[in-house]
Amino acid sequence: MNVIIDYKVGNIGSIKRGLNRAGIDAMISNDPDDIINANVLFLPGVGAFGDAMKDLKDTGLIPLIRQHVKNNKLLIGICLGMQILFESSSEFGYTKGLGFLKGEVVYLDITKKVPHMGWNKLFFAKEDTLLKYIQEEDYVYFVHSYYVDHPQDTLVAYTNYGVEIPAIVRQENIIGMQFHPEKSGQVGLKLLQAVKELIG
């Protein structure tokens, strides 16, 4: 079974519905047995980095998530869930992330309106099977005030909003999406269909 990790953050139902529309079955759970047996783990998230990390720690699931990654199973972070895959964040003071990916989460210190909220274009940084059904400059839906600074060679796709914002990152079995694929219309659906094929 695929599992959306339930750690008291919002938008979980929305992600589940989005996955279902793409033909991906997923249950919402924080039961350690479900996490251990999961085929794919989805890490959702909205709100503040520090609160989310604290809530995730409180579930006691972090060692199980690390083991999941060690077992080469897929871990997919969405929105704030992508950000906490990285090393740390400066949101309301320094907070350590899960550290699966190299990079830091920092505030969008730009002259444009923050949060970065709305439809923005994807540009491709490298080839990846996740991109097989979409085209460069397709629009996806973003809502966030912080972004990953220099994700280095994990960058798959990015957008521009005052700065270059990583939109899709991937390091083998770890995938992150900064935007909301479940709210990104047909393009989001196509991305999730590509995820479905990865799951097999």
Binding site: H116, W119, Y161
Partner: peptide, 8 residues
Amino acid sequence: MLARRIIP
């Protein structure tokens, strides 16, 4: 650049 939104 953000797209302008059309909202019915």
